[in-house]
Amino acid sequence: MTDDPSSLRAFFAAWELFGDPTLTGALCGALLGFLGVYIVVRRMVFLSAALSQAAGLGVAAAWYAQIAWSVPAAVASPTNGAAIFTVFAALALMGRRAGQALRSDSVLGLVYLVTAAATLAIGTRIVQEVQDIESILFGSGVAVAPGDFHLVAWMTLLLGLPHLWLHRGFAQIVLDRDSAQVRGLPVRTLDLALVLSLALAVSVSTRVLGALPVFAFTVLPAMAALRVAANLSQALVAAALVGAVSGFVGYLLAFSWKIPVGAAQTLVAAACFGLCAAVGLARRTVLVLQPRHVHGPQCGHALVAHGDHHDYVVDGRLQHPHEGHEDDHGALQD
């Protein structure tokens, strides 16, 4: 009796073949999930879409340079092309006034459309590589070269560790940028570091996995984490976990169900979002259904005069019923 070739046992039996792409998906998912929290809470979701599209253009441009101008492959490699174009696009998006430029949907739309059109235009000149460009845009690649796995591993380490170290600074510009600037935090430097690290992560990941899963990893894990996390630190950890799970399990499902890897990873991330959204909704429902205390003559709280009205004393503070809620009227004075 032979194993079903699509079973999990068969998958792990061939781990030598599938290990690198599976772990690559998990690492990219974890890093992009982590970075994606900043993207989602700053409402810059289309930034990652524009950057991954720019990465696609960089790959196409690199191939074109090899074919049309005979630039050595070591120089005009797809990875270099993706990195250069993505960083350039990120710097252009930073603009003179970083905060406004990054939030401008129209500017992001412009970059996305121009890079998409340019990628297709260049694609017609490098016919033999069109299949590769499509795999980059839609993430249908199954195999990951050992060199690409090592590249992703180093990228995760070199970007992940500084982000863990600097996360308090990045949190400040997300929570309240103006207050952070008043307290002397280098908000523009932090903006630049955030966008450049995102650009590098997106360019390498897009080159290896494809644009669809990269866009999914920067959006869906963060959306999932923000549904259940109590604060930003928790959200960062949860998003990294969801991203890693999506990358790993997505590859497993792609193997079992024989569907494109990028699509499977995106669907798993979407399922994680659905699960977290349900948990968040359940939590809020429990809160709403809890019997709410209503102040009244028999409620058990002392009623005291306060100016021209009366308040109830709760834990040493004055509460005043007002239009269905309680206003806080300060501490009880002796």
Binding site: V41, G169, L175, D176, D178, R183, P186, L226, A230
Partner: peptide, 30 residues
């Protein structure tokens, strides 16, 4: 600096203590 309350983005999960601790970050202290 005490900004207007609407300046705190509701999309960012935070407890009161997280916001107060943020006030303790100055310059490059992070």
């Amino acid at each position: 600096y005490v900004p207007q309350r609407t300046q705190i983005d509701a999309a960012v999960p935070a407890r009161a203590i997280d916001l107060v601790r943020a006030g303790g970050e100055r310059g490059w202290s992070f």
